[in-house]
C-alpha cells in the first residue's frame, strides 16, 4: 500500500497549475485534498506520473455570498463548509448540512469541494448537490475559463466532462433552496452511501408546487428522477402521503445495479424510504 514513483510539483497559481498539467500530459493529475487520489495511488489503482499540488492556492478557498448566489471555492474543505456561520449559507443550509455525511472528520478537514466534483463519484454529496441545485462548475485551463452546468458535468462511472488539464476553480449555486435536504443510508456512519437521496421542494401555502429529486447509488452518475419530480409539480398538499408516493415513484423509475454488495431490490427499497425522508426533512427545514 505504497504508491509507485511519481513526480511532485507545487503550483503557485491557477494558470501555472493548468499550464504545467498541460505540459506534463495525460499522466499528470491535480492534487487537492488527496482523500480519494492518494488511497487509489497507495493501492496502485491510480498511477499518475506527476502530481501538481494545488493545495496552497489560497485564492481557491472561500465561501462567498453574492446576492442570491453561493460561491464555493474549489479548495474549500468539507469541514469549512460544515462549520460555516448561518449568515453565509442562509437559504443554502442543505449544502452545509450535507457535509456531515462525508466520511469522517479527518477526511472532511482535508477533502475539498472541487476535488470531490472532479472525482465524480455518483454517491458523492457535492455531486448530488450540484445536480440538485443546478450549480455552475467554473473551470480554468490553458484555453481559458468556462462554466459547466452541473447537469452536464457527469458522463459516467467516475467520468466527468473535465479535460485532463482543466481545473475546477469554483462551484456556484445560483439560487437559494430553503426547502432542500440530502439524506443517505450506509451500513456504517461515514461509509460511501448505498443510496443517497437529495430533494429540493418548491413550497407555497402548504402545497408543493415543484421539486427536484436526485439519487446517488442507483446509476453511474447522480440521477435526476423526472417521474418523481412530476408528482411534486402538481400542487398537492405537502404531506406524508405525497412524499411516500414520490418515494414509490422514484423507486419504480430507477434501475439500480444488482451487486456486488447490496442488491437492486434493496437499493430500490432504500430509494423509496430515503426520497420520502428527504422530502420530510426538506419541508421541515
Amino acid at each position: 500500500m505504497k504508491p509507485p514513483p511519481f513526480g511532485y510539483h507545487r503550483a503557485r497559481d491557477v494558470a501555472g497549475a493548468t499550464a504545467l498539467v498541460a505540459e506534463l500530459g495525460e499522466d499528470a493529475k491535480f492534487l487537492a485534498g488527496g482523500q480519494s487520489l492518494i488511497p487509489m495511488m497507495n493501492f496502485r489503482l491510480a498511477r499518475p506520473a506527476h502530481l501538481v499540488d494545488i493545495a496552497r492556492l489560497g485564492e481557491l478557498s472561500f465561501l462567498r455570498r453574492d446576492d442570491d448566489r453561493l460561491h464555493v471555492g474549489a479548495l474549500t474543505t468539507h469541514h469549512e463548509v460544515e462549520s460555516a456561520p448561518d449568515r453565509s449559507v442562509r437559504g443554502f443550509e442543505v449544502v452545509r448540512e450535507a457535509m456531515r455525511w462525508i466520511g469522517h472528520l479527518p477526511i472532511r478537514t482535508r477533502g475539498t469541494a472541487g476535488g470531490s466534483l472532479a472525482h465524480g463519484d455518483a454517491t458523492a454529496e457535492w455531486c448530488l448537490l450540484a445536480v440538485l441545485l443546478d450549480a455552475e462548475i467554473v473551470t480554468a485551463s490553458p484555453r481559458g475559463s468556462r462554466v459547466i452546468p452541473a447537469g452536464e458535468a457527469f458522463l459516467g462511472f467516475f467520468t466527468t466532462l473535465l479535460e485532463p488539464d482543466e481545473l475546477i476553480v469554483e462551484v456556484v449555486f445560483p439560487k437559494p433552496a430553503p426547502h432542500a435536504a440530502l439524506t443517505e443510508f450506509a451500513e456504517r456512519r461515514g461509509d460511501f452511501a448505498i443510496v443517497a437521496a437529495a430533494v429540493d421542494l418548491d413550497v407555497a401555502g402548504g402545497r408543493v408546487t415543484g421539486g427536484r429529486v436526485v439519487l446517488g447509488g442507483v446509476a453511474p452518475v447522480p440521477l435526476r428522477v423526472p417521474a418523481a419530480e412530476a408528482l411534486l409539480g402538481a400542487g398537492e398538499r405537502a404531506d406524508a402521503e405525497l412524499f411516500a408516493a414520490c418515494g414509490r415513484a422514484a423507486a419504480e423509475a430507477v434501475d439500480p445495479p444488482d451487486g456486488p454488495g447490496p442488491g437492486a431490490d434493496y437499493r430500490r427499497s432504500l430509494v423509496r424510504a430515503l426520497v420520502a425522508r428527504a422530502c420530510e426533512e426538506a419541508l421541515a427545514r
Binding site: 443510508f185 451500513e187 423507486a251 447490496p262 442488491g263 431490490d265 434493496y266 430500490r268 427499497s269 430509494v271 423509496r272
Partner: peptide
C-alpha cells in the same frame, strides 16, 4: 440491513 429489510417484507 438488506436481510432485515427482506424479513420486514417491505422489499420493493
Amino acid at each position: 440491513p438488506e436481510r432485515v429489510l427482506g424479513a420486514l417484507e417491505v422489499r420493493w
